[in-house]
């Protein structure tokens, strides 16, 4: 058993904190995250709740907790979809080679040509702002990322001896991909999943910041920041909490991904 890297511990702890907060917010928050209280509006931390109150008097801690659900939910769903589609196409490209591979890589090239926020804004124009749009836009951007990694890793696996053996045993490319390639590339995919989920949280925050995220009253860290911009001088606490939440969640997932990579990839583990 290799020593578990410290980054993994920190990453796992931070990630768990946010996942825990998200889950907890479904059953309990200090106050109703959608309940306004005009008397408490713009009160600072301590004066009204632990993290203060926002422009219509909602408890900031409660919105940040509920925002974790929105943010993690969208990020995880988007990455899961993008990861599944990307990994599948990447593996298929590695298995099929030839024209199919070129077509997949060309499609990836087209997707890659659109900067993520821009393609999300375009999709937002087409489908209207909302959780579905955010998931689709972010997931779409993840597809080429996973496809590239899966293809690269799968190509390495395909060149190994046990694949030749499986081939000679009469197994078809689909079966080989599922039985032999997937288990051997899954570690890399899982590492990438953690890191891309972090990026997805950043992307979701950016979209919400531009008014293209989930509709109110669903709390969203990005929208909290966009609203807080108006109160920058009068209520700076509104800017700090959601930003720290975003940074904390992304940091946790990145560290988790890095830690997992160090754990599964001995060569990198040494270098670090």
């Amino acid at each position: 058993m290799r020593r578990v890297p410290a980054t993994l511990w920190i990453g796992a702890a931070l990630s768990l904190l946010f996942v825990g907060a998200a889950l907890l917010s479904r059953v309990w928050t200090p106050a109703d995250p959608t309940g306004m209280n005009i008397a408490a509006r713009l009160k600072g931390p301590g004066e009204a709740g632990l993290l203060g109150a926002d422009q219509i008097g909602r408890d900031v801690l409660s919105i940040v907790m509920a925002g974790a659900w929105t943010s993690l939910g969208i990020a995880l769903t988007a990455t899961a979809i993008g990861g599944a589609v990307g990994t599948a196409t990447g593996m298929a490209a590695a298995a099929g080679r030839g024209g199919f591979e070129r077509a997949v890589m060309a499609a990836n090239g087209v997707l890659f040509a659109f900067p993520p926020i821009l393609s999300a804004i375009l999709l937002g124009a087409l489908l209207g702002p909302g959780a579905g749009t955010a998931i689709l836009a972010i997931g779409l951007f993840m597809v080429p990322v996973f496809a590239r990694i899966a293809r690269g890793a799968a190509l390495q696996v395909w060149s190994r001896d046990f694949i030749k053996a499986a081939r000679m045993a009469g197994k078809g490319p689909v079966r080989i991909s599922i039985e032999h390639v997937l288990p051997n590339i899954s570690a890399q995919i899982i590492v990438q999943f953690a890191i891309q989920t972090g990026l997805a949280i950043l992307a979701e925050a950016g979209l919400s910041f531009l008014g293209m995220g989930v509709a109110p009253p669903n709390p969203s860290w990005g929208r909290m920041l966009s609203e807080a911009q108006t109160y920058l001088s009068s209520a700076p606490h509104l800017v700090l909490a959601p930003g720290l939440a975003i940074a904390g969640a992304v940091l946790g997932l990145n560290l988790l991904g890095d830690g997992l990579r160090d754990l599964t990839d001995p060569r990198r583990g040494q270098a670090a």
Binding site: L202, F209, L225, G243, I246, L251, N254
Partner: peptide, 8 residues
Amino acid sequence: GIAVPNFW
């Protein structure tokens, strides 16, 4: 640095 959103 990677984790903080640039607009924040």
